[in-house]
Amino acid sequence: MAQKSNPTILRPVNTLYQGCTHWDEPRFYFIISTIQKLIESCCLGTTHYLDKLQINRHLGLIFIEANLLHLHFNSKHRLKSRRYKENQIKSKKQSWTVLACRLQNAVELIQKFTGTKKVTLRINRIKAYTRSVPKPTRRQMAYFTKSFNHIRYDYARYGIQLMYLLIKNKANVTSLTRFLKQNICSRQRRKRHYQFLAYIKQGFQALQEYKEIQGLKIQIKGRFTHKAKGRSKIWKYQMGQMPLSQLNKNIKAKYTQTQTGYGSVGLKIWICH
C-alpha cells in the first residue's frame, strides 16, 4: 500500500519571496532563503517577530519589505516611579535600537552576499499592547499577568498579544511557531511545560469569540515532559474547522523541530484563513 501524502504538499503555494522580477539563475531559492534566515536571526532575543517578507529584484537593485510585530512586556499606561526611571537601563536588550543596528549590518552582508549595487530595506512595525486585547479576555487571563507570577509566566503579556493578532488574522503562522519554540526550549524545570500548554489552551479559548480565521490546529509531539525511558507525549489543540482534504482552502502550515532538556520535540501548526 502506498504511503499517504500530506494534503499541504499538494496545495498550491503562492510564495511571498518573489516579486515581479526575481533571480533567473538556478540559485535564487538559496539566496532568498538565506536572506530570510538572516533577517529572522536579527529578531532573536527581542520582542519583534518577523511576520511577512517580500523580496524584489530589478537589475542590480534589491528591495526587501518586511512586517515586524512589536510586542510589549509591560502595559502602555503603567505608572512608573521616579526611582524606576532613574535606574532604568537606556539600552534594553529587547529595544528597537538593538534590532535596527542588527538590520543595518544585515543589509551590508546581503549586499556583499548577492553582489548587487544597492539594497533597500523597508520595515513596517505593527505595535501591540495588552490594552488592545478585549477586556473580558484580560479578566480571564488575569492570573497569569499578576506581579507575583511575573517570573513564572514571563511570556504571559506578549503571548496574549500575539494570540489576539493571530485570531484577528493580523499575524502569520511563523510568529506563533517561534513563540512556541522559544518557550518550550526555556521550560526546563519539572512540570513547567504543563503550565505553558495550559496557558496556550486557556488563551485561545478566551479569544475564540473574536476569531476571524476559520480554524487553528496545533500539534506538539516529543519528549517535553519529565517521563523516563524515552517516552514521548502528544499534545493537540484545535479551534474551528481544519479541512485539510479540501485543496481550495487557504491553509498555511509550518513544521519545525526543537530541543529540550528531555529530548527532541516536533511542532506542527496549521491555520485556515
Rank of each mutant, 00 (worst) to 15 (best):
S147F: 12
I160M: 05
M141I: 06
S147T: 09
T137N: 07
I151W: 08
D154S: 14
T137Q: 09
K181T: 13
R139Q: 12
N172P: 04
I184K: 00
D154A: 11
Q140W: 00
I184D: 01
K170N: 14
K170W: 13
F179Q: 00
V173Y: 05
N169D: 12
Y143L: 02
P136M: 00
R139L: 08
R152Q: 14
V133W: 03
A142S: 13
L166I: 07
N183V: 11
Q161G: 04
K135S: 07
T174W: 08
Q182T: 15
R131F: 10
S186I: 03
A142D: 15
K168V: 04
P136C: 00
Y129E: 10
R131Q: 14
S186V: 04
V173M: 04
G159T: 02
L180E: 00
R131T: 14
S175G: 03
L176G: 02
N183Q: 13
T177R: 08
F144R: 01
H150W: 08
I167R: 03
Y164R: 03
Y129F: 15
L165W: 11
K181W: 08
F144L: 03
S147G: 09
N172I: 06
N169G: 08
S175P: 02
L166T: 14
K168L: 15
I151R: 08
I160Q: 03
T137E: 12
C185Q: 15
Q182I: 15
Y155S: 03
A156Y: 06
